[in-house]
């Protein structure tokens, strides 16, 4: 019910030209999504993170590894011992926490986003190819892969890191390698599910090319599934890269990656707790936003499916 009402409001201007306009499935989802204020808050936060990831060097007041030896372990500015220059305080080496967090967004949010994007493109491409070319509709294979993919991504990433060695780049490669088959699997399942449907058969009978069938006919109908799995993968990638950083197998000191910062901050957790609290909080807010957005997308998709 809700989306249609909204839809009317939004399209009033274009009524001049169109009697009735059917919003695309994705548009419908977006309209549903907009109706959820929490989701929008999460969405804006992610937008903010994206902005920071790109422009951190210009936004941050100091460099990530700039050390102020006269200002070691300062609490945040609002406490009595704080210094206004360092809004969120400094760590044990006198590095500005705010600047480190801002620079860290690049590593903790930007890098996973990039990894997931790349693995999604590769995985979806391969998944579509697999669905069309092999065409095995065996549910055994699906079940088998379901079981195989139940092995947690962090465990697999750990093993890959053990093979190629620790480091942020290697952690990123590991996460990418784990994500690609998952996207492949999801895409293949989604396409295979769509293939026998009437509308696809009808298009086929119309004699459209395979490329057109996939890109214009099937794709708009599976994009919602892909978007949801994208957010899930993003949340997992952020958490895994931070976890690898925390375990000392991902980003290495002095990189301001939040997981690695958290691991280092443990040394001072009992006397300057903000150094520990802040990267964790940033990570928490990021994950929460991704999860809220993902959740809202899912329910918007569900509503869209129910209303159409």
């Amino acid at each position: 019910m809700l989306p249609k009402r909204l839809n009317l409001k939004r399209t009033r201007a274009s009524e001049l030209y169109y009697e009735e306009r059917n919003p695309s499935p994705l548009e419908l989802v977006w309209l549903n999504f907009r109706a959820n204020p929490l989701a929008m808050a999460g969405f804006y936060f992610l937008g903010f993170l994206g902005f920071i990831s790109l422009f951190a060097p210009w936004v941050a007041p100091f460099g990530a590894n700039e050390q102020f030896t006269e200002a070691l372990s300062l609490p945040p500015a609002w406490s009595d011992d704080g210094d206004l220059r360092f809004l969120l305080g400094t760590d044990m080496l006198g590095r500005d926490m705010l600047s480190r967090l801002l620079h860290g967004a690049q590593l903790t949010f930007g890098v996973p986003l990039l990894v997931v994007l790349i693995s999604a493109v590769i995985g979806i491409g391969l998944g579509v190819a697999a669905a069309v070319s092999v065409g095995v509709k065996s549910s055994s294979l699906k079940h088998f892969l379901d079981v195989l993919f139940s092995i947690p991504s962090l465990l697999l990433a750990l093993i890959i890191v053990a093979i190629i060695g620790p480091g942020l780049l290697n952690a990123v490669i590991a996460i990418g390698l784990v994500m690609i088959p998952q996207f492949l699997h999801i895409t293949r399942n989604a396409v295979v599910d769509e293939l026998p449907k009437d509308y696809v058969v009808a298009s086929k009978l119309n004699g459209v090319s395979t490329l057109y069938l996939l890109s214009a006919v099937i794709f708009p109908n599976i994009v919602s599934v892909l978007v949801v799995s994208f957010t899930l993968a993003l949340s997992a990638a952020i958490l895994d890269i931070a976890a690898l950083g925390f375990l000392g197998l991902g980003a290495q000191a002095p990189a301001p990656e939040w997981g690695a910062m958290l691991a280092q901050s443990l040394e001072v957790s009992y006397n300057s707790p903000w150094v520990m609290a802040l990267p964790g909080l940033a990570l928490f807010l990021t994950l929460m936003s991704v999860n809220i957005v993902g959740e809202a997308l899912r329910s918007a998709l569900q509503q869209q499916r129910e209303t159409t």
């Binding site: 590894n65 050390q67 044990m92 080496l93 000191a253 002095p254 040394e267």
Partner: peptide
């Protein structure tokens, strides 16, 4: 007590 932090500072 903390060679890693020392190394980080030496880096700069």
């Amino acid at each position: 007590p903390n060679a890693r932090v020392m190394a980080e500072q030496m880096q700069s």
